[in-house]
Amino acid sequence: MHAQVMLFVLRLAEGLPEEGPAAEDVKAGWLGFSVFLLLVAAVVFLSFSLVKQLRKAQAAKDAGVYGDEPVEHPEPTGPADSADRD
């Protein structure tokens, strides 16, 4: 079995080209750059969408939709409220 694998690898190596293209012949260009920018935009869009869905799920959990006890959040107090108390 091991000998068959070695023969297969040797046959593959014989058929491969010795040299690749010249360095100046290989470049991504504008198409590669635009694909990269589209991938970045997709990651940003998916990140914002994930955050939105996680907030909706947390709000539903806090409301008791999933069978948990509803959670009541205290009203936030700002600096104006603490100045009135003094």
Rank of each mutant, 00 (worst) to 15 (best):
M1S: 15
M1R: 15
H2E: 14
H2I: 13
A3R: 15
A3N: 13
A3E: 14
Q4H: 11
V5D: 13
V5H: 13
F8N: 10
F8W: 13
V9M: 15
L10A: 11
R11Y: 09
R11I: 04
R11V: 12
L12N: 09
L12M: 11
L12I: 10
L12V: 05
E14G: 00
G15T: 11
G15H: 09
G15K: 11
L16D: 00
L16N: 02
P17K: 00
P17L: 00
E18Q: 13
E18S: 13
E19C: 12
G20T: 02
G20Y: 00
A22E: 05
A23M: 02
A23G: 01
D25Q: 14
D25F: 02
D25Y: 02
D25T: 08
V26C: 06
A28W: 11
G29K: 01
G29F: 04
L31I: 10
L31G: 15
L31Y: 10
G32Q: 05
G32K: 01
G32E: 10
G32S: 12
F33V: 09
S34T: 09
S34V: 07
V35G: 01
F36Y: 14
L37I: 03
L38I: 10
L38S: 13
L38T: 12
L38Y: 11
L38A: 12
V40P: 02
V40H: 00
V40M: 06
V40R: 05
A41W: 03
A41K: 00
A42M: 08
A42D: 06
A42T: 06
V43Y: 10
V43M: 13
V43F: 10
V44Y: 00
V44R: 03
F45G: 09
L46Y: 02
L46D: 01
L46W: 03
F48Q: 11
S49P: 01
V51L: 07
L54H: 00
L54Q: 05
R55D: 12
K56N: 07
Q58T: 05
A59P: 01
A60C: 05
A60H: 04
K61M: 06
K61R: 08
D62K: 08
D62Y: 07
A63Y: 05
A63S: 09
Y66T: 00
D68T: 00
E69H: 04
E69Y: 03
E69W: 07
P70L: 03
V71I: 14
V71R: 11
H73R: 14
H73A: 14
H73P: 04
H73L: 14
H73V: 13
H73D: 11
H73C: 05
P74S: 04
E75M: 12
P76E: 07
P76S: 07
G78V: 12
G78L: 14
S82G: 07
S82D: 13
